[in-house]
Design a protein around this nucleic acid. Structure first.
Lengths: 107, 107
DNA sequence: CATCGATTGTAGTTTTGTTACAATATACGT
DNA sequence: ACGTATATTGTAACAAAACTACAATCGATG
């Protein structure tokens, strides 16, 4: 099986991938950021889980988790939370765009 | 930004994607298969969530969800559960392989 | 109609997540 | 040192989601 076929196999369900939303406990395990801290960032408007718009418990998709990881990086680098958030916001533009396009292409 | 760059952007965290494991309720919403039914398939050994190996509550990764979707398809086509499972097992070989390779490549 | 395969229902319990309060810590300017 | 702003953490009381272990149901086939 060649590379294109592999890719297609995944792309076919890229929209499935975008539906994989995990709980806050899982996010904490993946990223190493305590749940309490994640909720705090959310209070500040830096992270927006799917809860804001619907359900009762917070759910995080790939883009959210990615963002949390990036912010953590910046904090470790010595940036303030706001500065980290701003920097990451920029970087996320590219990630978002790429993700969305791939999701779109697979429909 | 060209296609390769987009792809790379995603591939960079393909291992993150593979860590996104969702709860049974979410799987049910995504696939349309009732939680009760998913647990039943698991009893029969057709689906293997992460619970068997670790935690206390079941978690499902992309491959698990994909498998559930495929089994549902086969059932709707009139196959028995065992037959569906067998057929899907074959198809999953390719999906597994592709997924693993992509995850690997991104390290 | 009895049996098998497949699914569904549910009570009672455990795990996970939520809010809303407050406490703590660190840094910075006056 | 003191006050202030930023950032994080703790926790009690409550709500949601998931778990197990029973049992019931339903359709097809011998």
């Amino acid at each position: 099986m060649n590379s294109n076929e592999e890719l297609k196999n995944i792309l076919l369900d890229f929209d499935l991938l975008s539906k994989l939303v995990v709980g806050i406990g899982e996010v904490s395990e993946i990223t190493g950021v305590p749940t309490r801290q994640i909720r705090y960032w959310e209070e500040k408007g830096i992270i927006i889980s799917s809860k804001e718009t619907e359900g009762t418990t917070r759910k995080y998709d790939y883009l959210n988790v990615k963002k949390i990881l990036l912010i953590k990086e910046q904090l470790d680098d010595g940036y303030t939370l706001d500065a980290a958030a701003k920097k990451v916001e920029e970087r996320m533009k590219n990630v978002n765009e790429a993700f969305m396009k791939l999701a779109q292409r697979s429909k």
